[in-house]
Write a protein that binds this DNA or RNA. Structure first.
Length: 594
RNA sequence: GGCCCCAUAGUUCAAGGGAUAGAAUGGAGGUUUCCUAAACCUUAGAUCCAGGUUCGAGUCCUGGUGGGGCUACCA
């Protein structure tokens, strides 16, 4: 890397010029800001105490040394304590010649045995997916792609919370009021169908509480003793006992939900290498809790419930098993973590889970540590921010949710009408149109969500919807389509091209593009280190924006010189390929024409 | 009450302790006989408050204000 070379040479310069060995961390080489001349900048303020010269003088002497001793440096200028170095065109052109052929530029091949296991999605089987899940799924899938591109093996896993009181509520409602109807008989998508009964349970449950309270019962007590809740709990007990009738209903209703989820996953373009079900892992979790009890790291209370005392770590006591020995959320998460370690021996266990569960994961790590598992610190909670609506956060109960399927439908319609209004679809057949509208609508949605730093709370305004102009997915897709169009036109016109154009005088915009392209592998690494697709999204946007400016002011195909046409065309294609690769890391497809 | 997170143009987002805080959108104005105008160009507009550390603070520290989350024998 050129930055490392410059750092090394700068250190060398300090030895030569001032007889000083300085801490490499004091030398910062960064990209020169747009408004100044140069490609890389060394900030000399931190090292003036070693040179014992003014910042300007230090920068000037360092600049002269680098100009004399580093082949790539062709000029420099000094502004205050900033040394701006100009890298010779031949360096950038050399990079172009080497890299533009390479289809997988920026993508490292997987090495090492131990994979990174990434859990994402993790739905409950009682209701359809909403906007919060969309952020989760898109983040998880994209991060998996990015980590893979950074040269690691990745296993994408999903953990389905398929058991518990929530699904029992849906089951009970269906038994009581379903009259045997099914997704097929109603034409509803399976997850929406089951979700309907979950809502129905809640409605009747509320009504019952209201009635109990009106008859003089305390509200808190009513919420605990409502007959509907008791029945649902009875159903859960029967489930844990393996009651055949209950199991059958449970399997049937979960099956409906999975069919619905699969459709939504397919549409979002996400997939998994392995799917875990909580119903398969909670028993292992229970064994781990007993193990901890034997080791004396957990405690049993008089009623038989088992707890982990975390007060020494500044946290509270945490329940691990109920008095009746049924399991809680933490129990099954212990089990699944152990299972994954046994199965994959991972270098890291990444959990893509919302930041509302920060506390849960703090506790999980400590509990695993207390169990004596050395891999406790391989657990990494990728804690992403909530999606808020203009009126506050998403709340299923209050009906302020944005349903994932509805959202995708609306996006599709918007993409369709916008594209048709622009008169861009005459040349497409029906299948081509559908494919294009899918790409554009999902591109807009995915980019909108992924361009935001995962850790931050983000706002989604359904009224204003998602834009197709400016810093958006379709803008970048459009740039790609333009580049592909250039390529098509060049072939149509039978232009005389050369395979490896020789060194041409680089225009400023061309140099800017090459500098951006040069940074792509570093952007992939940075995105992988920080688990942040936003880094890639911003990179793609900058590249597309720079290209559009270039496209606007520089003719590509209308040049005389075949060498120059070839260079500009290949540079454009290089940009197009990197956009395609980068957007691919976000799970976004790019069209050849739009 | 305790613990955690956040605060940047009207709005939605950027900014690895570095130069004059970038974009987009919305506002105002402009570009199409020429490679796709979902584009491009010009223009106005912002770091919550008070201290501190530093040659240098949107970024780090302390206090305040405002917002969100967690603090379930729900998952």
């Amino acid at each position: 890397m050129i930055e490392e070379l410059l750092t090394r040479k700068a250190l060398e310069a300090f030895q030569e010029l001032y007889k000083q060995d300085i801490d490499p961390r004091l030398i910062t080489v960064q990209k020169t800001r747009r408004e100044f001349e140069g490609d890389f900048t060394v900030v000399v303020f931190p090292v003036v105490r070693f040179s014992k010269k003014s910042p300007e003088e230090t920068a000037r002497q360092l600049g002269e040394y680098l100009l004399d001793n580093v082949e790539e440096v062709s000029d420099f200028n000094v502004i205050k304590g900033f040394l701006n170095l100009v890298i010779d065109d031949s360096f950038w052109f050399g990079f172009f010649s080497k890299a533009h052929h390479h289809a997988g530029f920026g993508i490292a091949s997987a090495e090492g045995e131990n994979p990174v296991v990434i859990e994402y999605s993790s739905p409950n089987t009682n209701k359809p997916l909403h906007l919060g899940h969309v952020r989760n799924n898109l983040l998880g899938y994209s991060i998996a792609k990015i980590v893979e591109a950074s040269g690691k093996k990745v296993v994408k896993v999903n953990l389905i919370n398929d058991r518990g009181i929530h699904i029992c509520k849906s089951m009970l409602a269906w038994k009581k009021w379903g009259n045997g109807e099914t997704p097929e008989s109603t034409g509803m998508k399976g997850d929406h169908f089951v979700g309907k009964y979950y809502v129905m349970f809640d409605k009747h449950f509320r009504a019952e509480i209201k009635e109990l309270v009106e008859n003089g019962m305390d509200e808190e007590l009513a919420e605990k003793e409502a007959s509907l809740l008791m029945e649902a709990q009875e159903l859960l007990r029967k489930w844990e006992e393996g009651n055949p009738e209950v199991m059958e209903l449970w399997k049937k209703m979960n099956g409906w939900v999975y069919e619905g989820f699969d459709e939504t996953y397919r549409r979002m373009g996400v997939e998994f290498d392995k799917v875990y079900h909580e119903s398969d892992t909670y028993l292992l979790g229970r064994e781990l809790v007993y193990e901890g009890l034997e080791k004396g790291v957990f405690d049993q209370k008089e009623d038989g419930s088992i707890w982990c005392d975390l007060r020494d770590e500044g946290l509270d006591e945490k329940l691990l098993l109920r008095a009746d020995r049924t399991s809680v959320y933490m129990t099954q998460d212990l089990g699944t973590a152990q299972l994954r370690v046994d199965e994959y021996d991972p270098e890291r266990l990444v959990y893509v889970v919302g930041n509302e569960q920060n506390y849960h994961f703090d506790v999980l790590k400590i509990v695993i540590k207390k169990l004596g598992r050395k891999w406790w610190d391989k657990i990494y909670h990728l804690s992403y921010g909530m999606v808020e609506l203009p009126h506050g956060r998403l709340k299923s109960r209050e009906g302020t949710v944005v349903d994932a399927d509805d959202l995708m439908d609306e996006m599709y319609e918007t993409a369709k009408s916008t594209t048709e209004a622009l008169g861009k679809v005459e040349e497409f057949d029906e299948a081509g149109k559908k494919q294009l509208f899918d790409m554009i609508s999902m591109g807009a949605l995915k980019y909108f969500i992924l361009k935001v730093d995962p850790k931050k709370t983000m706002l989604f305004n359904p009224e204003e919807s998602i834009d197709f102009n400016g810093n958006t997915g379709p803008f970048i897709q459009y740039t790609h389509a333009r580049i592909r169009s250039l390529h098509r036109k060049a072939l149509e016109r039978g232009l005389e091209l050369v395979d490896d154009p020789g060194l041409v005088k680089l225009l400023p915009k061309e140099k800017n593009l090459l500098k951006l392209l040069f940074d792509f592998p570093a952007a992939v690494s940075e995105a992988a280190e920080n688990y942040s697709p936003a880094v890639i999204a911003n990179f793609c946007y900058d590249l597309a924006k720079e290209f559009n400016q270039y496209y606007q002011e520089v003719p590509v195909l209308r040049e005389e010189n075949p060498e120059i046409i070839s260079f500009r065309l290949k540079l454009s294609e290089f940009v197009g390929n990197v956009i395609k690769t980068g957007m691919g890391l976000l799970g976004i497809e790019v069209p050849d024409k739009m």
